[in-house]
């Protein structure tokens, strides 16, 4: 297909859609996971409140990460942000004030990350890696190296109870965060500009897009969402654990990548991240229900992640072209002269 041309007809429209969207692989994986789980461990669907909770646990931080990855940046500090915000919240006796301060801390951490990336010029991988260690240490210092119990444990237990059917406050907050981010990235100009910044930063700058401001916004979203996850975890566990979040970072990245968010930026969506979180969440719950050990679960999840990366359409198209040209060369070589 030539650049700028659109194929007409139903098939053409489907092809155009497939070429534009990045969620295809995630959707196929999700369908496969659903089919296999439905056959082998259907309890994962009857216990849908548990599955929904697991999806929200993985997905919330992944949503914030998506905003940063879309601009071609990384935020490795999300797990430590989650831990330190939880500790800050639990250390303040007034629950409401604690939540506000913890969320503000998340935004502040995002701003500091952005300052290092935008003004100091440090690669986001390095800047947020440093922040990961610094915040983990801060969480230990604030908590005196012990879990900090909530002053109002009953409020925490009440928070973990379902509101309507299987929908707990965690699931509801996840849904709201998903809708808000989806609207921001697709309907709001500033959000749409994230794609331009990630696709070609120089071109975005030349086009008058405030690149620095957009990067600040992305890191602030990531920090805020990670802090929100920390607040929710602390409420649900009735205590803040300074070592919390150890499994969150990799699971969040995995959800985004499985959902088709491209690490180099410019392509992907929160819908894809949702699909990735659904695939991982359903799979994890089914494997746990089947009594499969975490080590083996890691093999399954790692394999799915590898499939998601290997089956990238760009790579597949290149591979297919290589195969075609290989056979064409062989055919030419076999024609007698």
């Amino acid at each position: 297909m030539k650049l700028g041309t659109e194929q007409s007809g139903l098939l053409g429209r489907v092809r155009n859609l497939a070429a534009r969207r990045t969620e295809g692989r995630g959707l196929i994986l999700l369908a496969l996971v659903i089919i296999v789980v439905a056959i082998l461990e259907p309890t994962a669907f009857t216990a849908y409140s548990v599955t929904l909770g697991r999806v929200a646990l993985i997905g919330l931080v992944a949503l914030g990460l998506t905003a940063v990855i879309l601009m071609g940046e990384l935020d490795l500090s999300v797990a430590s942000t989650l831990a330190v915000s939880g500790v800050i919240m639990a250390s303040i006796p007034d629950l409401g004030l604690g939540i506000v301060v913890a969320l503000a801390a998340g935004i502040l951490i995002g701003i500091v990350n952005a300052v290092f990336v935008v003004y100091v010029g440090i690669n986001s991988f390095i800047a947020t890696l440093g922040m990961l260690f610094a915040l983990r240490g801060l969480a230990f210092v604030i908590s005196d190296e012990k879990p900090v119990r909530l002053s109002n444990i009953d409020a925490g237990i009440a928070f973990g109870a379902p509101l309507i059917g299987p929908v707990t406050p965690r699931v509801l907050i996840f849904i709201v965060a998903f809708i808000a981010l989806q609207v921001f990235l697709t309907r709001v100009r500033a959000g749409r500009e994230f794609y331009a910044v990630g696709g070609n930063r120089q071109a975005a700058f030349d086009a008058g897009i405030p690149v620095r401001r957009r990067i600040f916004t992305g890191f602030m979203i990531s920090g805020f969402v990670a802090a929100l996850a920390g607040v929710i975890n602390t409420l649900e566990r009735t205590a803040a654990d300074p070592t919390a979040g150890s499994s969150v970072l990799l699971a969040s990245f995995a959800a985004a990548i499985i959902g088709g968010v491209v690490l180099t930026g410019g392509r992907g969506s929160v819908v894809g991240t949702l699909i990735g979180a659904l695939s991982l969440g359903i799979l994890q719950v089914a494997l746990t229900l089947s009594g499969v050990q975490t080590d083996i679960q890691d093999i399954f999840i790692g394999s799915i992640l590898l499939i998601a990366v290997i089956t990238d359409p760009t790579q597949l198209r290149a591979a297919a072209a290589s195969v075609r040209s290989f056979f064409q060369r062989r055919e030419k070589a076999q024609i007698p002269t």
Binding site: A47, V50, G53, R54, L57, P147, N233, E236, R237, D241, T243, A244, G245, S246, S247, V248, Q284, V285, T288, L289, G291, Q293, T294, D295
Partner: peptide
């Protein structure tokens, strides 16, 4: 049926829900 949370409180809480 044995689970291993690897000392992660969130993972164990999730295992408990399951």
């Amino acid at each position: 049926t044995i689970t291993n949370s690897k000392y992660d409180a969130d993972t164990q809480a999730s295992d408990c829900e399951v």
